[in-house]
Design a protein around this nucleic acid. Structure first.
Lengths: 229, 229
DNA sequence: GATTTTTCTGTTGTGCACATCATTGCAAGC
DNA sequence: GCTTGCAATGATGTGCACAACAGAAAAATC
């Protein structure tokens, strides 16, 4: 670990991270859909700061592939064509499995409890499916899943690719190209299976289950997108 | 591909990338050693611009883990302790092999010629070992190696991890903790072996060779660092 | 003499005014 | 009526002055 791991998170650095996470979440949850234009001025006003520090946040999001600024035109949420999406998903599959092989942690009771809670929420969601709630839960599940490896670089990269791709997949769900109820049911089973694997301490199995679900959900999206033409 | 893939690279975006690559190279080649302080003002003057656009470059390098800015103190080249280095290297090993499995390209005559040229330069370097030249050649080889996969996300991530770790390894070489001549000889054989694999179109074999060399070079560094205590 | 306080210096962070750029709509010319 | 040039508009990019901050040196105090 480097400098600036002070207990008191430097308020400037802290604010940067909060704004970054907030905007990133909005992009991932499709509050800002692909192609949408973000106004620096409006966003700066919303966060109560000047454009300068906000631009730093936007630049970071641009480096993460979520935004693209064009001089004289605007800052736009990126869209991803099916070609790069395939490549990114293929890489995500490998990385997902790696979470179970590269520095896996032994699932503590706290971790297991976390997945129990997620599982319960997924069950509740099944009773009243809601795309937005589904997106949120999916994101929280993924973040929790990253906690299964102690490899910080692997976590970083996986997170990055998650935010790049999942929003595109969610777009299909939001547009009802994929049946929400089916998707929630599959998701509930995924969490349930992962939870069972973790109960017996088999992180690798959990990772394989997750990998399989990423693969299948992507295939469902391709089929859905194909059927919509 | 997104917007801004115009033939005429926007001069602003182009300049950004040139400065970014330049500073990144300096960091990787240890012109700016870990722990060194970079002056925004001096760098801005050198590139003939104001601090504002330069800060954007530095922010990018910070997001790539090569720099760290501390308010009121300075901007420093990051150092990496052995713990995170182990984790990053383990990930790099997997990614290196993946280059041969995920969208490998069929080696064109141009690509093979590129490796031939690199091989020749390595042989020349052996006659007159020079740490700086060695570092440059190593970097060029790696960039060429990335060309063996068509997976853009894999390339990006691999490149990122390369720049994060290699400079630390090179530090050992520059400090003569590792014998330069031996290292150059091993490197020459690596290129030679990779070239032979590519000649028969076996990218996966080339990737395995590269993976093996990354693994071994890291081990040599650990031994060297251990012996120096 | 040691310690505490204060001042001073140099750095990154922020706000603001302006430059630069791309788009759009309008008007002049053909 | 169509095309072309151009001005107006609104966006991001840049430069500059200043604020916030950390560290070190100096001075005051005990």
């Amino acid at each position: 670990m480097n400098i600036a791991s002070n207990g008191f998170a430097g308020s400037a650095r802290d604010r940067f991270e909060r704004m970054h996470d907030e905007i990133r979440t909005r992009i991932c949850l499709l509050d800002y859909a692909p192609g949408a234009r973000l106004s620096e001025e409006i966003l700066a006003a919303e966060f109560g700061i000047s454009r300068t520090p906000l631009r730093r946040v936007l630049a970071r999001l641009e480096s993460e592939g979520l935004l693209q600024s064009v001089h004289g035109v605007g800052t736009f949420v990126t869209d991803v064509d099916i070609g790069e999406l395939v490549q990114t998903y293929r890489l995500r599959l490998e990385l997902a499995e790696m979470i179970g092989k590269l520095d896996p942690v032994v699932p503590s009771p706290a971790i297991i409890a976390e997945f129990e809670a997620l599982s319960e929420r997924a069950r509740a969601l099944l009773a009243a499916p809601d795309p937005r709630r589904f997106a949120e839960l999916n994101m929280e599940f993924f973040i929790a899943f990253l906690g299964l490896t102690a490899s910080e670089p692997l976590r970083e990269i996986s997170e990055r690719l998650y935010f790049q791709t999942t929003r595109i997949w969610l777009k299909s769900v939001f547009a009802s190209l994929i049946d929400l109820r089916d998707e929630v049911e599959v998701f509930r089973r995924e969490i349930s299976d992962v939870r069972r694997a973790l109960r017996i301490g088999d992180v690798h199995a959990a990772a394989l289950i997750h990998r399989a679900h990423i693969s299948m959900s992507f295939e469902r999206m391709r089929k859905g997108a194909g059927a919509s033409r």
